[in-house]
Design a protein around this nucleic acid. Structure first.
Lengths: 194, 194
DNA sequence: GAAAAGCGTTGATCTACATCAACGCTTTTT
DNA sequence: AAAAAGCGTTGATGTAGATCAACGCTTTTC
């Protein structure tokens, strides 16, 4: 099960990890299985893990007073999952993270992460590059939310992550895009064909 | 003029830089003055600098087909400015960055930044922490754009960056918040008093 | 110091998208 | 095998906020 993570990191770094590094990863990342609908994290808890998804899919969301879910992140295999801010600062997370399919994850706890992983220069470097890429992606999402129509946001996502439409039900994708399921349905029915 | 940057870094690191480090910063960061309305970066150019604002204020924005500005970032003294993605990847920036007041900046070029600065462990570490914080901030902006009303977004900004309302004209702040100047004006007139 | 540009405000109208509601189909639960 | 929950669709109606337009005030320009 750690093979996937090791292959991922080899690929990200463009080199092959030593046996020693591989063993370190195996000792730090604990495998965990979650069934569909199980929570990885609940609103109000401190996030105590950094997770790498080996198989399955998750959603990250808040719930407003009227009970509506607002999806803010979607994650599938080979993505990192967790509330990084809560994890790093030790403050309670405002988010829920829940399995949308059965999930296998590798979890690193806070101490292992800070004391062991982030002291490995190459892994630390990789994390920094990922954080930076993530922030590039987020700027685009802010800009998109301010300037694009619902239809344009749909097309962008369809182009960038076509696999999402196979993996997540439509009402989840709609929320992730900041629109209702009815609006997304109408977009797909109508001028949905770009 | 480098004093401001050195004080900023000392503060961020919680320690005092050596004379040697100070000289390094002085040799890498070149001071530049810009007058109100001057561009630091124009749409389509590659961003070739990482900038630290010593005095003044800037806006970062795109312009749509109808000529409307969409403000995506606002920066004042002691903030970093530039298009990090363009800077790191060498791709043309979609953004304009323009002085809103007369500005003094310290600019580090790409080579100096990569070869010199990011090899100083402490400075590199500081940059990584800032990038991480920035990404925490961006997630909140995405979530706010999807879930909050115009009025709620206004109150949030007013609470978080009250100084913006002294520094930037209202139509710029409105655009940064993803609303029109008319809407912001009505919010402030009406239930503007939270 | 006259003209022009920039800024904020207010009113009237328009529209993209949300909300509410009902229905059929499929999947899951028991 | 029946009941219930989840999902996508379609129609009718509502609304937050955009757009368009006009007006005063201040600041900048020449």
């Amino acid at each position: 099960m750690h093979d996937t993570l090791i292959a991922y990191i080899n690929n990200a770094l463009g080199k092959t990890l030593s046996e020693k590094d591989e063993h370190l990863l195996e000792s730090v990342f604990k495998p965990k299985k979650l069934r569909k609908h199980q929570y990885m994290l609940q609103e109000g808890e401190v996030c105590r893990f950094a997770g790498f998804i080996v198989r399955g899919a998750c959603k990250q969301y808040t719930v407003d007073k009227s009970g509506k879910e607002n999806i803010i992140g979607l994650f599938i295999e080979h993505w990192w999952v967790g509330d990084r801010e809560s994890f790093m600062t030790g403050t309670p997370s405002p988010y829920n993270i829940e399995a949308v399919e059965d999930v296998e994850v590798l979890l690193a706890g806070r101490e292992d992460f800070l004391n062991t992983l982030s002291r490995q220069p190459f892994i630390n470097e990789m994390m920094n590059v990922l954080t930076e890429k993530h922030s590039f992606h987020l700027i685009k999402r802010v800009h998109a939310a301010h300037t694009l129509t619902a239809e344009e946001r749909y097309h962008d996502l369809h182009k960038k992550y076509p696999e999402f439409f196979q993996r997540f039900p439509q009402h989840i994708i709609a929320s992730y895009l900041g629109m209702t399921k009815e609006t997304l349905s109408r977009i797909r029915a109508g001028s949905g064909k770009k």
